[in-house]
Computed example of a mutant assay.
Amino acid sequence: MEAVTNAIQTRKSRRRNIITLSVLGALIVLVFLISMNTGVIRLSPVEVVTTLFGGGTDKQNLVLFDFRLPRIVISLLIGAGLAVSGCVMQGISRNALADPGILGINAGAGLMVMLFISFFPNTTAAPIYLLPVLALIGAGLTAALICVLAYKKNQGFKPTGLLLTGIAVAAGISAAMIVLTLRLSPEKYQFVAVWLAGSIWGSSWKFVLALLPWILVLLPFVMYKAQVMNVLNLGESMATGLGASVTREQLKLLAAAVGLAASCVAVSGGIGFVGLIAPHLGRRLVGAKHQMLLPVTAMIGALLVITADTLSRSILQPSEIPTGIVVAVIGAPYFLYLLSRTRA
């Protein structure tokens, strides 16, 4: 009887997961189509379809293929990357409030990118492909500093200590970035200010090609480690008893999470809260098993960022709101809600 009940529950869970993935996929496609129609220059749905199949005018081809589609694709990649990065950090730290932005990883990546932009021109092709590498260096150094400060001998990483250390390091890096802005020219200062607010400034196919390899390599790696993350969630003692090399696996997953966050920040600026919101919504929809949680989290993150970017381009036309501000309007109240529940 118990076996039959378990089989029924498994079947229901599988059906629910399929429905969840289908609904999220349909919503992403819907927002994708709406986003292609959104902008200062209006394109009707018929014109979009005609242009996609090669029947558009030169102006329509320019608007759709050179301006809108690269930005839409980057929004999807950034959303998936930041969301999965947050999910990994929450998993290995066992802290519901862990997020690349809150822990200072985004700030570290941003500081390195800002240093490069401050001292070198960003108009040539080489810096575009170099930015993710520089961001990875900054994020990696920040993560290493946080780990060194938060690690306790014979105790490992305590979730609360890791979070508080990350917040402190992020505050210090943010202060350093403010000081650096004092030496910028007015043009670069305006660019950096918009970038820090979370503007998707890399909106050409070159930036897509710069970001895509990182996503294609690191996302499958994290998915492959889903079972390991399930074991790590049981706690260090239990995971060690099951044969897992806890510290080594934590460092591998942390490196992947840092790589995802850094490469996304390099082309998106300081977009926060995606890595916090998406994993929580994913757990509510499909539970805590990472085999389903990771892909659902990636889809939620992609949907969140592409929706925020579409709204940022349409609310105050012809002006544009940084995408990070729209995400923050959604994420800040949710963060306070999670913080209040954690304290309780």
Rank of each mutant, 00 (worst) to 15 (best):
D309R: 04
N122V: 15
L97N: 00
L131P: 00
V326F: 01
G301W: 00
L254A: 11
R42S: 12
V84P: 02
I178N: 14
L164S: 09
I178E: 14
F53A: 11
T247P: 05
T142L: 14
Q317P: 04
L62H: 07
P213W: 07
T181R: 14
L76V: 14
F120G: 11
I271L: 12
R14F: 11
G101H: 03
V194F: 15
A3S: 12
Y129G: 01
F207M: 10
L209M: 14
I300T: 01
G54D: 07
T310S: 11
V208H: 05
G324P: 00
F221K: 11
S245C: 10
I78D: 01
H290D: 04
I78R: 01
N233I: 12
A83N: 03
F53L: 12
L131M: 13
G156N: 03
L69F: 06
Y151L: 13
Y224H: 14
E236K: 08
L294G: 02
G108N: 04
P121T: 15
N233V: 09
F32L: 13
A244V: 15
R341N: 08
P295F: 03
A244W: 00
K206H: 14
W205E: 03
A143M: 11
A98Q: 01
L21M: 12
H280E: 06
V208G: 07
I34N: 05
V179Y: 15
